[in-house]
Structures are given as C-alpha cells and as structure tokens.
Design a protein around this nucleic acid. Structure first.
Lengths: 217, 217
DNA sequence: CTCCATTTCAAACGACCGTTTGAACTATGC
DNA sequence: GCATAGTTCAAACGGTCGTTTGAAATGGAG
C-alpha cells in the first residue's frame, strides 16, 4: 500500500494543535512547534504567513467537523418538530466531546486544543475562536429560546454561555486535574477519564437540569 | 489625614493582578508590570525573587479574604445543623463573586485575575492556584456529599468541579464577551454586567438545579 | 555626623522570540 | 536535456524576555 506521508503543512497543524493545547498560544514558541514537526522555522511563515495565522488555520481545521455535525443535528431536530431542551443540549455537547474524544489519542489532543483556545487569556485569541464557532450560535440560541418559552432571552443566553464554558473546560481537561497533584478528590478519580461517552452523559444531565429549573425568569 | 502611600511592593502586586488578569501569565512581561507600577525592573526580583514568585504572592493575597470568608460561612453552616445544597453552593459562590466584585474597580480586577489564573493554559500555573484554594476543598466536598446522600462521590466531585469552573469563568468575565465583537447575544447584553449580586443569584440558581437533579447516581 | 541596613537604579547578561532573506533543493512539464 | 514553480534550508535580523550586577540613593539608630 502506498503511504500518503503527511505534508509539512499537515505536520505543522498537528503539532500546533498539541502544543497550543498544552501551553497556550503565548506559552508555545514556533521553534518548539517546528522542531517537533521536523520542519524548518521558516516553514510556518511560508505555509501560513505568521504564528497567528497558523493558529487560525488550526482552529478552523479542528472546528470544521464539530460545526458540521452540530449543523446536521440541528437541521435534523428542527425538521422533526419542536426539539426539547435536552435534545438541543445533546446536539451541542456531544459533537464537542464525542466526535473529538472518540478517536484515540489525537481526538483528545484536538479537544484540549479547542477547549484551551476558546478561553485563552488573550482577548484577541478568544475572538479568533469565537469567529469560528459563531455561525451556528444564533441558531442554537433561537432554538433554545423556543424550547424554553418561560425563560427570558437573557436567561437563555446566560445558560448558553454556561454550557459553552463548561464544555470548553471539560474538553481542555482542566477539570480533570493531574493525578499526583493537590486537586479535587485525589482519593477517587472522577468517572469520566476513561469513557468520554460517560462524561457526555454526565454533562448533559447536569446542564439539562440547570436549563429546565435553574434559569430565572 | 495622612496618606499611607503604597509601597513599591504593593504597587507591584496591584499592577500584577491587573496585567496577569488581562493578558495571562505568559502574555505579560515584567517590564510591562514594572513600568505601569512606576518601579524599576529589578524591583520584582528584589521584593519577590522571580516572576513566578510575584504571581504566587499575588494569588495568595487575592485568595486570602475569599478563603477566610468561605471558611467562616462553612463553620457557621455546619454549626447550625445539616446545610442544604443551596446553602453550601451559596457559601462557595458568593465569596468568590461578591466579596471581590462588590468593591468598585479594583474588585473586578481581582476577580478577573483569580478567574484567569485558575484556568491558565500552563499546568504549572493552575497547580499554583489550586494549592492556594485547596485547604477548604475537601471540607466542601464532604459537606456536599452529606447534603446529597443520593449522589455518588464521583458525581459530587463532578458537580463541584463544574461549580468551580463556572465561577472562575464568570470571575474572569470570559463569559461576558466584548460588546462590539461577534459573540453571544450582542443584540441584548446579559443581565449580569451591572449588578454582581444578580449574577450571583443567577449562578446559584443554575447550580442548585444542576446539583439537585442533574447528578447521576 | 557616622554607620548600616534597606531600597532603588541604570545597565548589561545570555537566551529566546517571531520574522525575513536568499540560496539550495525537489519535482514536474516541456 | 532545460526551464520553472514549489518547497526547504541555514543563517541572520532586530527585539524582547527574565534575571543579575554593582553602585547610588535613602533613612532611621547610635
């Protein structure tokens, strides 16, 4: 069989995903990325133009399948009548956790990358991410509003932001602290580390309860 | 009245809070801090020893009143019998939001600083923060477990981590995106920007519902 | 005033940063 | 074969990074 070897461009994107996800944008140097990708320093500016353009390309590539799947689910739900809050929450959470975690090692890397960038300390980086996930946001907000007519638009937006934030934190694995360090419940490891599906179920249940009964009028 | 002028050490801590909260640890240089604090570059290493030690000192100073208030509330609740989940959640959230937001401009700066550092991209920084908020963590977990006997320890820990994460995100104002940019609900600004008390109420209600009915057995 | 510990200062250290350059290499079409 | 477009390369660019140095300023105690 012929092995379609990864191009330099692809290797740069893969390593960028991993390193940016581990150390953040500011905390990761182009030299660290290019060395790990077995590429020359100048390759970044040749293929992408700048460090930030590399990040933008990596975000776009990582988010594309998630956005596609979310759109597909939303289309499907709305075609079938009035979706419940749980269906909508599931359609948002699961593509973020499963589609990306359910692929062995690389999936976890992509998830951590997305989760970290979404709440990077730099406003510039956060907006860069927001622009990528923006298109479907208003659709979800409108659908949630219809599914929760008793909640005010502000309350729905509040719930949506909480959902978005919690998803990002779980994606980035920031809520599953290091085993050896001083963290939460180091006596018993949380449920979710082995099975991303179980984490998705737990998170959906948590959010459904909060949306159904935790939004102030 | 005599004006006890701020010492260089205090000015450095104040500016560090602000800049680290805005740009993150890696994204903020000591030169930017010392210039804004009208101090010499060498002052950081003289008063603290290193950049990381400056951060550690800032975290400790910022967290001290929050930890004290949380301990006080927990003592009071446990002295009065078996606290409800809502009382426990309130005792955790409110010190984080009010005690720190309800102080004009500087309170918001401190809140953003804490919220950002708690989920900094660098694991090293996150652990530095975790060590500071660790002491009361096990007390809260145990109290929550007693208040929610039907939930498994894993589920309680899961809920606690979600609470901690959501609090940090709201503290850092990462969930109240920039007004002009492409973000959630730029048609109507969320409720919470003007009144931190209202945000606390919304967040507590959200979490109480999630804890009461959203934790899987 | 002298002494001494504390604090501030300008200047420099080596290291690393993102980016650019221009030549060398590679592969494909003619 | 040669020409050509695409890609990779070592090397260097000017800047900024955290940290260190040693001297100058400061200010209370004797």
């Amino acid at each position: 069989m012929e092995t379609p070897v990864e191009t330099t461009r692809e290797r740069l994107l893969n390593v960028a995903e991993q390193r940016f996800g581990e150390g953040g944008y500011e905390g990761t140097s182009l030299r660290a990325i290019t060395v790990a990708a077995a590429a020359n320093i100048a390759a970044v500016n040749y293929h992408f133009g700048s460090k930030e353009a590399l990040l933008r390309a990596a975000v776009a590539r990582a988010m594309a399948p998630v956005n596609t799947e979310r759109r597909r689910r939303l289309d499907q739900l709305e075609a079938g009548g009035a979706p419940t809050p749980e269906e909508l929450i599931r359609a948002f959470i699961e593509p973020g956790l499963e589609l990306v975690l359910r692929r062995g090692e690389r999936g976890a890397v992509v998830a951590r990358f997305i989760g970290r960038i979404a709440f990077d300390p730099s406003r510039r980086i956060r907006e860069l991410y927001a622009a990528e996930s923006d298109p479907i946001e208003s659709r979800y907000l409108a659908a949630l509003q219809r599914a929760l007519p008793q909640a005010s638009p502000d309350a729905v937006a509040f719930g949506y932001m909480n959902m978005l934030g919690l998803l990002a934190l779980h994606q980035s694995q920031a809520l599953s602290p290091t085993p050896g360090a001083a963290g939460v419940a180091n006596t018993a490891n949380p449920v979710n580390t082995e099975d991303p599906g179980k984490l998705a179920e737990n998170l959906v249940a948590f959010l459904v309860a909060a949306f159904d009964r935790g939004l102030r009028a």
